[in-house]
Simulated assay, not measured.
Amino acid sequence: MDNQLVFATNNAHKTHEVSEILAPEYKVLNLKDIGCDVDIPETGNTFAENATLKSSYVVQHFNLDCFADDSGLEVEALNNEPGIYSARYSGERGDAANMQFLLHKMEGITNRNAKFKTVISLIKDGANYLFEGVIYGKLRTEPIGDKGFGYDPIFEPNGYDITFAQMDMELKNQISHRALAMQKLIEFLKTT
């Protein structure tokens, strides 16, 4: 098939979800499908740089068009930390440790404004296209909810009185930062 794209992820659920949306125009493969078992380093200083590092790696080593994403939480009062370090903010990978570390840093701070951001890098026919999704909200003072992952239990999106971790996945997948960026990618792919 000429119209195949690699999604630089090992997450089978994400791959299936995107495959359903892009079918039948595109066949979506993930890293496992192409035999890539490398943990592609994310050494960039921005979400866009990290996403581009991942998509570029696939293009350079496998000669296949590819898209990749990088996401994180940015807290206004902490100068947009944790940002690109969201997955290892506490010094280790682990959702609970990172969330507790952030809550500890936020003790006594009244400005709870935060945003989740995703940037997708698509390298297609040698050109790099970037798509960004942002959702604004505020941080709760303690976790609530058992759905989602990462900082979802402490992030309440604007216009809602529940956290991402309390939200039905169908709703979250319509309004989240990743969903917004993915919609832009899909619109672009369907018009090219």
Score class of each variant (00 low, 15 high):
residue 67 F to Q: 10
residue 173 N to F: 07
residue 139 L to M: 03
residue 188 F to K: 12
residue 61 H to Q: 15
residue 71 S to P: 08
residue 130 L to D: 11
residue 89 Y to S: 04
residue 115 K to V: 01
residue 85 Y to F: 14
residue 124 K to W: 13
residue 168 D to Y: 03
residue 186 I to M: 04
residue 100 Q to C: 01
residue 171 L to V: 15
residue 125 D to R: 12
residue 191 T to G: 00
residue 10 N to G: 15
residue 144 I to S: 13
residue 11 N to I: 03
residue 107 E to V: 12
residue 135 I to D: 09
residue 94 G to A: 05
residue 103 L to R: 04
residue 168 D to Q: 10
residue 122 L to N: 05
residue 86 S to L: 04
residue 46 T to A: 06
residue 103 L to P: 06
residue 188 F to S: 09
residue 42 E to N: 06
residue 142 E to S: 14
residue 90 S to D: 08
residue 177 H to V: 04
residue 78 L to C: 02
residue 102 L to W: 00
residue 41 P to W: 05
residue 36 C to G: 02
residue 64 L to D: 05
residue 19 S to K: 11
residue 41 P to N: 01
residue 75 V to L: 07
residue 126 G to Q: 10
residue 37 D to A: 09
residue 25 E to L: 14
residue 134 V to H: 05
residue 140 R to S: 14
residue 72 G to A: 06
residue 130 L to K: 11
residue 109 I to S: 03
residue 137 G to A: 02
residue 189 L to G: 02
residue 148 G to K: 02
residue 187 E to W: 00
residue 54 K to Y: 05
residue 80 N to K: 14
residue 72 G to W: 05
residue 64 L to V: 05
residue 126 G to E: 08
residue 120 I to S: 10
residue 65 D to E: 10
residue 70 D to F: 07
residue 3 N to D: 13
residue 100 Q to D: 11
residue 171 L to Y: 00
residue 20 E to I: 13
residue 70 D to P: 08
residue 127 A to Q: 15
residue 185 L to V: 09
residue 69 D to G: 10
residue 167 M to Q: 01
residue 156 E to F: 03
residue 173 N to L: 01
residue 57 Y to K: 07
residue 35 G to F: 06
residue 152 D to K: 02
residue 26 Y to W: 15
residue 78 L to W: 02
residue 11 N to E: 03
residue 15 T to M: 11
residue 159 G to K: 03
residue 189 L to N: 10
residue 9 T to H: 02
residue 29 L to A: 09
residue 144 I to C: 11
residue 88 R to T: 01
residue 78 L to P: 06
residue 60 Q to Y: 01
residue 92 E to L: 08
residue 44 G to A: 07
residue 192 T to N: 13
residue 128 N to Y: 02
residue 175 I to K: 09
residue 51 A to N: 09
residue 132 E to K: 11
residue 113 N to D: 14
residue 94 G to I: 03
residue 158 N to H: 12
residue 69 D to H: 06
residue 1 M to A: 15
residue 4 Q to A: 00
residue 1 M to R: 13
residue 133 G to S: 12
residue 45 N to G: 11
residue 85 Y to C: 03
residue 169 M to Y: 13
residue 13 H to G: 06
residue 83 G to I: 04
residue 69 D to R: 09
residue 127 A to S: 14
residue 37 D to G: 11
residue 26 Y to G: 06
residue 40 I to R: 02
residue 103 L to Q: 05
residue 192 T to A: 06
residue 14 K to E: 04
residue 34 I to P: 09
residue 95 D to C: 01
residue 60 Q to N: 15
residue 191 T to D: 13
residue 132 E to Y: 04
residue 107 E to F: 03
residue 61 H to M: 12
residue 137 G to Y: 04
residue 19 S to I: 06
residue 126 G to C: 00
residue 64 L to Y: 12
residue 162 I to Y: 07
residue 8 A to Q: 10
residue 73 L to M: 06
residue 12 A to N: 07
residue 131 F to W: 10
residue 141 T to P: 00
